[in-house]
Each structure stands twice: as C-alpha cells, then as structure tokens.
Design a protein around this nucleic acid. Structure first.
Lengths: 330, 330
DNA sequence: TTGTACGCGTTATCAC
DNA sequence: GTGATAACGCGTACAA
C-alpha cells in the first residue's frame, strides 16, 4: 500500500503538503494541490488509519460486545449499532461472548488494547463495579440493561414488560403460570423474574413457578419439556425471551399439548420469527434495532464531546397480543 | 492508559526489557522479569495494538462485509467468522452494505485504511475485476459466492441447490412454477435462477416464470402478492431465500391461498425460522455458520502463511422436505 | 543479559 | 505557502 511519502515523492512535494491537502488544513497552492490529488489517485492512496490513530489518539472505532449475534434480537441490536456508527464515521468491532462472563471480560481487555474509543456492551452479566475496574475510564454504554453505577445505558423496562406479560396471562384465565427464566445472574432476566413475581403475588388464587432457562433454544426446550411432563402442567407459560418461547411451542408439539387451548404462551423481544411461527406468539416488544442505534448514538455523542444527548434512554415495553394466548382465529 | 515507557520507568528498566518480557523474546533476568511483571500489573498495562500494528504491519484484524447482519443467514455466517477469528487471535470489523454496491466498495476502501489484514466478503455483487482493482493485493475471501478470478472462496452449489428445489416441486406435481429471484446482478441469485431454469427446461409440460425479488422480506412479499393475484396463479413457488419464502407464506395467508394445498413452496438457506413457521418450509440447506467459519479459517491460514488449507470449499446443498410441499400431516 | 537508536505512517509545530 | 522535524507507542537490530 502506498504511503504519504510515496504520494509526496510522486507529486514532488513534501509530506506536510500532502498531509495538508488530505486534512484540508492550512493553505496549499492550487498547482500543488492538483499535483497531490493526481498522485493520490494514481497510487490509489488510502491514509493509514493506524498511524493516524497513533498520533491523534483516536481510532474511530467502537467495540460491540453481544452474547450472540446469531440470536435475532442481538443481530437487530448489532445492526442498529453499526448503522449509527458508520453514519458518524465510526467502525465497529464485533465480539460474541456466548453469555460467558470470562469472555466478556476478555473482550473488554482486548478492545482496550485495540484502542477502541468506547464500548457498547449488550446484555452483560458482569457486575458493574467489576466492569469499572476493567475499564480504565474507557467510555462504555450498557444496552439491554439498566445501569446503576455507570452513567449511560439504554434498556427497556424489563420488570414492567414482564408484569404486562404475566398480567395478560392471568387475564386470559391462567391460574398456574410458569416462567422460564434467563440466566440467574443476568440483570434483564432478574428484572423479568421480578415483574413476573409481582404480577403473580398481586393476584390471589394464581400460582407461579420459575424454571431455569438460559435465553437459548436448547435450554428453553429442556425446561419446557420438564414443565409439560410434570403431573401438574401449567396453563400458562411466560418465557423470558422469544427464542425460548419458540422452543416451548416445539416442546408442546412434541408432547401433543395444544397452544393456546391447553397452555397459553407469552414470549419477550418480538423477534420477527415470533410473528410467523404457528401459533404466532404473544410477546413483549423490545425494539432491538432502535436500542442499538440509540446506544451507538449516545456513546458517539460522548466521544465527540457533545452533551446534547441524554445519557440514558428507557424504552417502553409493549404487549403484542397474538395467537398463542387467544382462542379465536388462529 | 499506561504505556510501555511508564512500565519501564516504574520497573526501573529500559523499554526494550519490558518489550522482551511482553513478547517473550530474548533473554531477561529473573529479577528484572519479576519487576516488569509487577509494574505491568500495577499500572494495568495493556500493550497498544495500534502502535504495535504500525511497526509489525499487522493488526490482527479482519474485515467482514455482509449485506445485513439482521438477516438470519448472514448473522449465522458472521457468528462463524468471528468464532474462528477469535480462536486464532484475530478480531472482526463488521460492515453492513444493505446489498448496496457503493457501500460495499466504500467499506473495502475504509477497511484498507484500517489496515485489516484481510476481508471476508459475503454475498457480494461487485464484479470481481472491480474488486481486484480496489484491493491493492489485500487478501480477500468470497463467501456465498463462487470466485472466478479470485483464488479463495466458499460457497454452496447454488445452481445445484436450485435445481434440487425445482425438481422437487415438479415431482410433487407442480406444473406452473414461479421463481422469486434475488437481485438481478447477484451471483448467487443468478446461479439459482439458472438451476431453476434448467430443471424447468428439462421437463416437458412444466412452465416456469421468474419474478424479481431482492432477497428481502418486503420485496418477496410484493412479488408473492403479484403472483398470487394473477389470473394464472402458479401451483408451485421457489423463493430464492427463506426470508422471501416466509413472505410468501404471509402473502398466501392474506390472499386466502393454502400452502401446500393450492401452492407448494420451497425456500433456500434453512434459517431456523423456516422450520418453525406454519407450514414449515421445505428448503435447501446452506450451512451459514460452517461457511463463515471456513471462510475465516482459509483467510487466516493465508495470512499466517500456512498453505495446509485448500483455498476454496464448495458445500453441497441438501434438500430438506417439510410441510410446505407435503399434503400429509401438517 | 540489558540498553540505545531507528523506523513504522501521520499530524502538528515550527522555520523558511 | 511550503518543507523539515519531532512526536505518537512499540519492536528490533545492534551495540554495550
């Protein structure tokens, strides 16, 4: 690859002149300017962002840490993050943790070494104070998790969303409701559990149980099979995300249990698939793309030293009623 | 952030000594070694990958260009690419082109400036010779597209897969078959069209038409509505990918047309959703994760100067027969 | 075994 | 207006 020196040599000027035309800084005569532009074209010159970063101490790069991009919710978030980033001249490094704490921390360190200017951390489970310790002051924004110490984050009201979902099951007549939860230590899973419990406790005559899931298809499937094999089969299930809700549908099919006739089902996230499965799944909408986009926007505003953007944004959850909780037209 | 100098100063040694312990190169006395390690801990030192890259001319970063990570097929590919990359100490920059040629080229240039060591280009539509022109010799591997000039690539036999799909429709009794295609200039779309045509032409008494789609839900939906609104409704539809096939299912629902009774349907990709929609969609399997993983592997082998890996890999397409083409148990 | 000096590609600060 | 030069943080010959 051609360097600034090559361009200077070919254009018969000094590197500083070339630098000036590249960055539109300082004055440069028309004649020289043209020569330089010509030489850059000729050599197919691309300024080296590495060297540039070394001196400016800016890399125009942010890190994106997600549990798993192959999960539709997170791929939506990722898309949002990248769209907003590139629109602002930033580039995104993608990292998958598989919900693994160690990998999360490993990536935080690795990204620091790469001099990313900030990190969008999605669905994290690491305690915040530990994060702060790792961070060395590197800007970070939590997505899909409400920050307690950290100053910036975007999230939906998970407790409220779960409350909505559970309440809906109760209204549809369910009395023995099971919640297939996310990982024990996941903040969003915890909030959804809390919302579930609150709705249950508010209502006399309704019983709730919590089954451990892990936000993944297999874990959800296993939990569902257990629930549906018990002697006391629930009449309503609230899965902590749509991926597990879809697993519930498959498990029900397998066990010959009908949804919504025998068991009603609510999911969480509103991934596209939730609408197209059979029966379509009642779910709590979480706008992944918008969350990602907003996270990116807030982070970049911080990096650029702008303070015209609020550091936090709570998204309102919305219940989308579909056929997994309705008896009419499937 | 602490630099190597800070560490050297604190440990009371020279920077080269620190460098040596970091890179395990050259000899360094036990005493000094311990002092350096201690100082690094103390300062929470992270070697600066930027500076390091500048001198070594290596960034341990690869670029990943996909049409859209939010598309389940590509998010699978992306996941595969990242998994293999990180396992080899590489990091991935994610770029979404939205199937836009200009953005594809813009990203190729941008990534070059960032000194990525290579690029995984997925589902590209740019003519290969143009790519070569942009590349300046930067290693690249095509995924989901068979290279003609470029030397490395992973792909599935799209023509064969489309042939399989169409043949299956014919065998199931379809005589008026429509193909909802991908973008005109997409190599994989073109190959699938060719496979479709071949199967049609081989069989007397079978008529085929091609409707223009764009690999996206909306485009597929529109094409499907048109097909299903014509006076001469086809009895079989082969959609060039599953996302559009799912759109066909929705369009059919909307028009009150039954699948598979009135129209049989085959998709392409085998994204998870294709199995869970109703009816489940017969599709041609394309192993996105494995393709991504393999692409990453081949690229990195090149970068590391290893030649123990073949530069190309063709994946065999497999037909998965499900309920969108079968009349028995839905 | 350790330290010095140079270079990687760029930008910024000076002289000219 | 333009050009030389010192940083930026690190690796690596080479000298000590």
């Amino acid at each position: 690859m051609a360097t600034i020196k090559d361009v200077a040599r070919l254009a018969n000027v000094s590197v500083s002149t070339v630098s000036r035309v590249i960055n539109q800084s300082g004055y440069v005569g028309k004649e020289f300017y043209d020569r330089v532009v010509w030489a850059m074209k000729e050599l197919n010159y691309q300024p080296n962002a590495i060297a540039r970063g070394l001196v400016s101490r800016k890399t125009a790069t942010i890190g994106l840490i997600v549990p798993d991009v192959a999960n539709p919710f997170f791929s939506d978030v990722a898309r949002g993050v990248e769209d907003e980033a590139i629109a602002n001249g930033y580039t995104v490094i993608l990292c998958n943790t598989d919900w693994n704490l160690q990998r999360e921390q490993m990536y935080v360190n690795l990204l620091q070494g790469k001099w990313v200017e900030g990190i969008v951390l999605v669905g994290s489970r690491t305690p915040e104070h530990e994060l702060v310790g790792l961070l060395n002051g590197l800007p970070i924004i939590l997505a899909d998790r409400k920050p307690t110490h950290l100053k910036s984050g975007v999230w939906t009201d998970n407790e409220g969303g779960a409350y909505l979902a559970t309440k809906h099951l109760i209204e549809m007549g369910c009395r023995k409701i099971a919640h297939i939860s996310g990982p024990e230590d996941s903040p969003s899973a915890t909030a959804r559990r809390a919302g579930f419990r609150q709705a249950i406790e508010e209502q006399v005559g309704v019983y709730g149980t919590v089954a451990q899931g892990d936000f993944r298809y297999d874990g959800g499937y296993e939990a569902a099979i257990q629930l549906l094999s018990a002697e006391d089969v629930p009449d309503g299930i609230f899965a902590a995300n749509d991926v597990m809700a879809i697993a519930v549908v498959q498990a029900a099919n397998r066990k010959g249990i009908r949804i919504p006739e025998d068991v009603k089902l609510v999911g969480y996230d509103n991934i596209p698939m939730s609408e197209y499965v059979y029966p379509s799944i009642t779910t709590v909408e979480q706008r992944g793309y918008d969350m990602g986009r907003m996270a990116s926007k807030i982070l970049i505003a911080q990096l650029d030293g702008r303070d015209d953007v609020s550091l936090t944004k709570e998204f309102e959850p919305t219940l989308l009623v579909r056929h997994s909780t309705r008896l009419d037209t499937p």
